[in-house]
Write a protein that binds this DNA or RNA. Structure first.
Length: 645
DNA sequence: TCCGCTTGCCGAGGAGCACT
DNA sequence: AGTGCTCCTCGGCAAGCGGA
């Protein structure tokens, strides 16, 4: 068998093994591979084809979505988005801010179009095409079926290197629309995104083009940004026209030229210009000196044109209830065409926003789409019919609303159906559990009388499937059900910290927990102490409020963790935390108590004595006179009654 | 500036359902 | 068994607000 066939064979075996590992059929005919056998297959494939897509998939479980047949791909270098400016002075301050640091000697800037399409990453290995992937969330994208865009993809490029990533934009040229009447113009970006998701190509797929703007690869380095663009010309993909200057004011003049005429001349739709320092060394200096944010580099910026808008009238105001009870007003407008889409809704953020901007029902409003995406009301004119927007009761449960900061809040946090639905939804989305959306959750909660997430985790798999089948209209034998169950099971495999972070305590996400060194419920409960109500640290106060608001808050999270039982999954990076015990415990020996705690909290370790390093002191009866207790008080170490765990 | 939280429109396709 | 309609969900493009 030749190498190529063996590679195909290995791909097939590995994918199949991953699939059967995660399917829940009783298909005993199929022989299951042992882990070792599986590893051997992977190793062999790695030898033959180090960059094979099958090896790059995110863990076994994310390999293949059985419904869409999409494979996840990790971007080892994230595909970041870009910071934006709209005004000349903002562009100047971005530039001057860098120059004023005194570290930059090369002022050259490269200006290029920001093509409005779907971002993509093409991987080439030793000149041969391997795969194309979407940007996804910047870190994990989806593989694109390149059968859909056979004409678009060049199978080889004359650039050597074992791993060459070509980054650019998939787009449909404007000429596609120009053949039509203006009223029939189609939204090209959406159309392109849709076409890339198809199972079978259609006519429109032939129009899709790819224009590269960045190249990242092993064994290649550049001194200048434009060297990348010049090298990319060799790929025979369409090339980006760029403008180069040392003078930032010329950049703005070029932008004005862009708005006036260039934009119309180009064959693709664009949503602004990209400005980047030409010298790669300068880029590096900026990264070192100014860092990166989560989303973008600071050595590049996008200049965005004013967004287009249109007039409409608010015909209604809808009130959404968020998972934390915040009331969010949304303007419902008579549908109006903006660009190539119809807009009928725009958020009004909160009731203070409505009042401060004097927005009323039946007002005439000018609606933008910020950066041509999100509808946004920017001008308001009252009419004779205009009427003040008011709300007193929760639209979901009827509870009287209370004012809190800029928001109106429904205080019925535990029983308000809308809040429960959104809590479920937040958990499902943050855990990447798919196929159960708002509507299904609504039916689950109303029909099935569910009110807490732990109730789902307390069920066995078959009962869960029955419930989902009954209330969410998904039959047991469908791919959707299998995929849902797979993802649901996967959600059990995470640390206690992950669970707390995703659970949705107001203002507390995973990053915040890490910052605060909260790993477990044990770390969390210490904030129940009412002294944190006056804490200067807002998040401490928030946790304190949440814990004391209603004891059922904690009980609910506690039950969820109990049923998920995350003790198997311990983050190895966590330094063990020390705990100590003092005082007599009812019906329990000291040793049993230690075992119990260590079992429950695998990152906790018993310490004989109370030192500064001890994180928690558990106390039993009559413990307040012990020296351990006094030392703990002295060092400000949290003291918790053993009973409370 | 970071983090959490909230918002909209579009096309593709899975799945249920009523009807032939 | 096949067809068309409808509901639902996903993933593509994202930004703005508020608090610290």
């Amino acid at each position: 068998m030749d190498t190529l066939n063996r590679i195909k064979e290995l791909e097939r075996l590995i994918i199949q093994a991953k699939k059967s590992y995660y399917s829940f059929t009783d298909d005993t005919d199929e022989q299951q591979l042992t882990d070792a056998e599986f590893d051997l297959l992977e190793e062999e494939l790695r030898q033959l084809d180090p960059n094979n897509v099958v090896l790059r998939q995110v863990g076994y479980e994310d390999t293949l979505n059985s419904i869409t047949n999409k494979i996840k791909v990790t971007h080892t270098i994230p595909m970041l988005s870009m910071d934006k400016v709209k005004k000349k002075e903002d562009l100047l301050s971005w530039f001057n801010n860098k120059i004023d640091s005194g570290l930059i000697t090369d002022y050259q800037l490269v200006v290029e179009p920001k093509v409005d399409g779907v971002s993509g990453d093409l991987l080439y290995s030793n000149t041969k095409f391997q795969y194309a992937a979407t940007r996804g969330n910047g870190r994990i994208g989806l593989k694109i079926d390149t059968n859909l865009i056979k004409n678009t993809i060049k199978s080889t490029i004359p650039i050597k290197g074992s791993e060459i990533h070509i980054r650019g934009e998939f787009y449909i040229p404007k000429s596609y629309n120009l053949k039509k009447e203006r009223d029939d113009y189609e939204p090209l970006r959406n159309l392109c995104a849709g076409a890339l998701k198809r199972k079978e190509p259609i006519e429109i797929n032939k129009y899709i083009e790819f224009i590269p703007y960045n190249i990242i690869g092993t064994d290649i380095t550049f001194d200048k940004e434009i060297e990348k663009l010049e090298l990319l010309r060799k790929t025979k993909y369409p090339d980006i026209q760029y403008f180069i200057t040392k003078d930032i004011t010329h950049v703005w003049e070029y932008f004005e030229e862009y708005e006036k005429s260039l934009r119309n001349k180009w064959s693709f739709e664009s949503d602004g210009l990209v400005v980047v320092f030409n010298s790669i060394n300068t880029q590096k200096i900026i990264v070192q000196e100014f860092g990166d944010t989560d989303h973008h580099h600071k050595y590049a910026i996008a200049i965005k044109p004013k967004s287009v808008g249109a007039w409409s009238t608010i015909r209604d105001v809808e009130f959404n209830v968020s998972r934390n009870g915040r009331i969010v007003p949304v303007a419902i407008m008579y549908p109006v065409q903006i660009g190539s889409v119809m807009v009928s809704r725009a958020t009004l953020n909160n009731m203070s926003f409505v009042k401060e901007n004097n927005i009323q029902l039946y007002d005439k409003v000018f609606c933008n789409r910020t950066n041509d995406v999100i509808p946004d009301i920017v001008k308001v004119i009252h009419t004779t019919k205009s009427k003040e927007v008011t709300i007193e009761k929760c639209p979901s449960c009827g509870t009287k609303l209370v004012e809190k900061g800029v928001d109106y809040i429904c205080p019925n946090h535990l029983n308000c159906p809308a809040q429960i639905v959104n809590k479920f939804l937040h958990w499902f989305t943050s855990n990447d559990i798919k196929h159960i959306g708002p509507s299904s959750i609504d039916k689950l909660i109303h029909g099935g009388n569910f009110s807490s997430l732990w109730q789902l985790y307390a069920m066995n798999q078959n009962d869960l499937m029955c419930v989902i089948e009954k209330y969410c209209n998904i039959s047991k034998d469908t791919d959707t059900m299998k995929e849902f169950i797979r993802l649901f099971e996967k959600s059990k495999d995470q640390t206690e910290q992950d669970i707390i972070g995703k659970y949705g305590i107001p203002t507390i996400g995973i990053k915040m927990l890490k910052k605060m060194n909260i790993y477990t419920l044990n770390d969390l409960i210490k904030y129940k102490d009412l002294s944190y109500m006056s804490s200067d640290v807002a998040v401490e106060k928030n946790i304190c409020i949440w814990l004391n608001q209603d004891p059922r808050n904690f009980d609910d999270l506690f039950s969820l963790i109990k049923y998920i039982d995350p003790k198997k999954k311990v983050d190895k990076n966590i330094k063990k935390k020390l705990f100590c015990i003092t005082g007599a415990l009812d019906n329990l020996s000291r040793n049993d108590a230690i075992k119990e705690i260590e079992n429950k909290y695998p990152n906790y370790e018993y310490s004989n004595t109370v030192t500064k390093d001890v994180s928690i002191l558990y106390i039993g009866n009559d413990a307040t006179n012990t020296s351990k207790y006094k030392t703990a008080v002295k060092y400000n170490i949290p003291i918790i009654e053993y009973k409370s765990i």
